[in-house]
């Protein structure tokens, strides 16, 4: 038991302190992912997250979406029923190599995030001709 706690502590220390938020519980935002010939479009629902509390990271082939909720609650409010009970959203996706991670563009409007990840230019579609000998 003791050993296990020590080990957990060690792994926690290895991680970048900036990533410490990753250990905190978060909600999984629902997403739609649509692929067309030129790239992928991702929509994510993050209601309650203001623009400045949304963070997007592309790192080592991973795309991570994180957002913190900021609701204006009156002072001394007691929650009587809560379906949204955690203060943040988080979701991580693995990008495949044909996607151009440097050219991700994002829009965030009324709690809906729209991400566009284009495919690497030289990998964009080309019709393969079939020659009949």
């Amino acid at each position: 038991m003791n050993n296990e706690t020590a080990m957990n502590k060690e792994t926690a220390d290895i991680t970048n302190p900036a990533d410490s938020a990753r250990n905190e519980a978060a909600m999984l935002p629902p997403v739609d992912v649509i692929e067309d010939a030129n790239g992928i479009t991702l929509y994510a629902d993050l209601p309650g997250v203001p623009k400045d509390k949304l963070s997007l990271h592309v790192e080592g082939g991973n795309l991570s979406i994180e957002g913190e909720l900021a609701l204006d609650m009156p002072e001394g409010m007691d929650a009587t029923h809560a379906e949204v009970s955690l203060p943040r959203y988080r979701r991580v996706f693995t990008l495949s190599k044909e996607l151009d991670a440097d050219k991700v563009s994002a829009e965030f409007n009324q709690g809906v995030l729209k991400l566009r990840i284009p495919k690497v230019a030289h990998l964009q579609p080309r019709k393969v001709e079939i020659r009949v000998a």
Binding site: L46, P47, G48, M77, T80, A82, E83, Q110, V112
Partner: peptide, 18 residues
């Protein structure tokens, strides 16, 4: 939906993005 209250008000939050 989240529902909460204070002595002065009842507050309802509906999460309807976009």
């Amino acid at each position: 939906m989240n529902v909460g209250g204070t002595p002065r008000s009842v507050d309802i939050y509906a999460f309807v993005p976009g």
